[in-house]
């Protein structure tokens, strides 16, 4: 059903706020402060799917 989720580019196509999106996740990528280093969109898509399948 959600085949398009497997294409990570969708997450940067759906919005004209790509830079803001990256920046937001970049902000939490502070060294040794917060573990969530989601600089790879592939990881983000994967994690989002598991979030939806799990507690979300």
């Amino acid at each position: 059903m959600f085949e398009f989720l497997k294409d990570k580019s969708v997450f940067i196509q759906w919005s004209d706020k790509k830079e803001e999106f990256i920046k937001q996740y970049g902000e939490i990528k502070e060294e040794d402060l917060v573990a969530q280093n989601w600089d790879r969109l592939e990881k983000m898509v994967f994690r989002f799917i598991i979030d939806l399948a799990g507690y979300y």
């Binding site: 996740y25 939490i28 502070e30 917060v34 989002f48 979300y56």
Partner: peptide
């Protein structure tokens, strides 16, 4: 509308995490 709903949700969770983690920092 299912894709749009998903995108809406993704944007909202992004906003939430951005605010929450910036507060934690």
């Amino acid at each position: 509308r299912k894709e749009l709903n998903l995108i809406k949700g993704a944007m909202e969770i992004t906003r939430y995490r951005s605010i929450y983690y910036s507060i934690l920092l």
